[in-house]
Design a protein around this nucleic acid. Structure first.
Lengths: 161, 161
DNA sequence: AGAGCGTAGTTGAAGGCTTGACTATTCCGC
DNA sequence: GCGGAATAGTCAAGCCTTCAACTACGCTCT
């Protein structure tokens, strides 16, 4: 919807003016295209989607290579249900296994297996190279700094759900 | 994967250093959270997902409120198959109808109905207000300008598939 | 005219995600 | 320690997306 007035209209809606529209669309489309591109390159050359990759990364970065399901879900910006399904599929591939949590009988630990670590290692090369090619190689140091600044500002607002 | 060296390692992979990691994650997580938030607010208060919204917007901005399927797919960053399914569902709701293209017998035109336009009109208020609240209200004019600049730079690289 | 090729769009099956309901376990106040 | 509330995780149904055919039409060369 392109609508007339730059600020609050008669109906109270604060429509976007033409410049704001352009800024918003450039941001939206670029982030969608970038995510799409990275996900496809990763999926096609390793068989691991970006969502699964994030799970493996999170586990690999933790001492013991294991994490509670809920914590893992939070880190991966995933719902619990989605994570549960994803871990089941990773388990089928032999990359992760479940283990009941010693401290809390309700809890489950997702543990990265050695096979999982190897798969991640292979995927990491591909993924990092993609991020460099499509993001860092395209931007100046100043642009990278602004990108981070904008990202962090938005995170402070969006982070606490 | 957090890996040691800042630049090209022995294996040739140009790993990200700690600062690059932070910049990349801030960008990725903020754009994911933002899209998720906007989509949820729109879906919950209007029953229209962001993907459908984009389709309706594209149609509404065109003279005749109609567009060829392929062109529509491109504008919505959608595959043809995905768009075809989506239009079928919008058709069931009575918001869009299909019409064979006069100039090219192979082609189909998606046409926005009056009901579709009304639904879009209602949704637009909600969506624009969300974008303001979660994006523009959070950023300074300088940040907005950088966001646009970064987005446009990335688009020039990613746009031509 | 007709063969062959490219383009436009659709379809169906397979798999992923979301929602909401459900089970199991722990925590807390008495 | 016991009953109720809260928390952790799973599961099933339904929707969405993807992939790979598949149909239908137009274009070109002979």
């Amino acid at each position: 919807m392109t609508s007339g007035s730059p600020d609050a209209a008669a109906d109270g809606t604060r429509w976007l003016d033409a410049e704001e529209q352009k800024a918003w669309r450039a941001y939206l489309f670029s982030s969608m295209l970038l995510q799409d591109r990275l996900d496809r390159e990763l999926t096609h050359s390793t068989g691991i989607s970006h969502a699964y990759y994030e799970i493996l990364v999170a586990l690999s970065e933790t001492p013991g290579r294991s994490m509670r399901m809920s914590e893992l879900a939070d880190r991966c910006l995933s719902s619990r249900s989605r994570l549960s399904h994803a871990v089941s599929r990773l388990e089928e591939r032999g990359w992760v296994r479940r283990q009941t949590c010693p401290e809390d009988g309700r809890g489950q630990l997702a543990v990265l297996t050695d096979e999982g670590f190897e798969a991640l290692d292979a995927a990491a090369h591909v993924h990092v190279e993609s991020v460099r090619t499509h993001l860092f190689d395209q931007l100046s140091p100043e642009q990278i700094a602004s990108m981070r600044d904008v990202g962090e500002t938005l995170l402070r607002h969006l982070g606490p759900r």
